[in-house]
């Protein structure tokens, strides 16, 4: 069980949140060429790192916002870095 640092609400219980998964894949929307491999990578391929992971959480039973946080997947420690939601 984690205490998740919501930038709007402070540290809240994990059960208030819905997991949004890895935040790093970006949809290749608006690309000129139709590149299947880019869509494949976006939908299916994951780094699945043992270490720092940027991920999305939805504070469903709180402020209702999507937030982006960085967590060490080996320790579950949240790390405040420049890519996290301020």
């Amino acid at each position: 069980m984690l205490l998740i640092p919501c930038p709007w609400c402070g540290e809240r219980h994990e059960s208030e949140f819905t997991y949004g998964g890895d935040a790093s894949p970006v949809a290749p929307v608006g690309e000129q060429e139709h590149k299947t491999s880019k869509w494949y990578a976006y939908v299916y391929e994951r780094d699945n790192p043992a270490g720092l992971l940027h991920e999305l959480w939805h504070h469903s039973f709180g402020c209702g916002r999507w937030i982006r946080l960085a967590r060490d997947t080996r320790t579950n420690a949240f790390i405040n870095d420049e890519e996290s939601t301020p």
Binding site: Y19, E55, R71, T73
Partner: peptide, 13 residues
């Protein structure tokens, strides 16, 4: 457990 990772431990929930 409700989020991915490599820590082989889970919560009481």
């Amino acid at each position: 457990e409700p989020r991915n990772g490599y820590l082989p431990r889970g919560g009481f929930d």
